[in-house]
Simulated scan of single mutants.
Amino acid sequence: MKVVAFERSLQGTGASRRLRITGKTPGIVYGAEAQPQLIELDHNALWHALKKEVFHSSILDLEVAGKSQQVLLRDVQYHPFRQLVLHVDFQRVDAKKKLHTRVPLHFMNQESNPAVKLSSAVISHVLNEIEIECLPSVLPEFLEVDLAKIEAGQTMHAKDIVLPNGVSLVAHVEAENPVIASATIPAGAVADEAASGAAAEGEGDKPAA
């Protein structure tokens, strides 16, 4: 995904405020053993880009003054109540160094899960993203989580995710192995089932006429 930015020479609260009045958003690019670079971006284009999942989880081609560099979006500061982006941070990518970043989880086959269809189970997504490490060349846009076989009362953990070659969970996620999804039967469904069972037993106890 390509992002066009422009060099920015002025900094400070006043300069940033004036920049925003003109429909621009201040930002910075840092990392890869190079000097930080002040940039500005068109606010409307940035606002629409931020609504796309891929903008947050993939390597971006950032063009500044005609030169392109690969970056990751690292931080976004929003206005507390206005639809306004105050500042963005991008980190340069080194092709030879592993990245530590978060990628979205896409949950698959939830509707066709037998526990959902037959037992009224509800599958909750506990995490919507996970932290991984890999070289930039194999960074996935998202990871799929197959919910086809999770049963009522069961949970899925981070280690249950099938990772692409060259991709691994970061050390603390590997150690903690957090829950990413769980399947439960709502109390109402359990009560209904119990009531149905009791009614059936009651009918069986009635004397024949």
Rank of each mutant, 00 (worst) to 15 (best):
Q69W: 05
D61E: 13
L84F: 07
V173G: 06
A95F: 05
R18P: 07
Q69E: 14
H56S: 06
A32F: 06
Q37F: 04
D61I: 08
E7F: 09
E7H: 14
A181M: 10
H106Q: 10
Q70G: 04
R17Y: 07
G14E: 14
V116Q: 06
Q110R: 10
A187C: 13
M156I: 04
H172L: 13
F142M: 10
L169E: 04
V85E: 07
A191E: 15
Y78I: 05
M1A: 15
E131T: 01
K51V: 11
K97I: 05
S57D: 09
L163W: 00
E53K: 07
M1R: 12
G27W: 00
L169V: 11
E151M: 09
E176D: 12
A65M: 10
T101Q: 03
R18G: 15
L105D: 00
V170Y: 02
Q35H: 08
I39T: 00
V167F: 03
L73Y: 06
L86V: 09
K98V: 09
L84I: 08
V173H: 02
K96R: 12
K149Y: 08
A5I: 09
V76E: 07
N44A: 12
G166S: 04
R74Y: 05
T101M: 03
L86D: 06
R82Q: 13
P26F: 02
L139M: 10
V76H: 01
G202V: 07
V29C: 05
V29Q: 01
A152G: 06
V173T: 14
D75T: 09
Y78C: 04
A65W: 05
S57R: 01
D42V: 09
A175T: 13
G31T: 08
K2C: 08
A65Y: 04
P26E: 12
R18V: 11
E201L: 15
L41G: 00
A158R: 01
H157M: 13
L139G: 02
P164T: 11
D205V: 13
A32W: 07
I150D: 00
R102H: 09
G166N: 05
V29S: 06
H125M: 09
S196D: 14
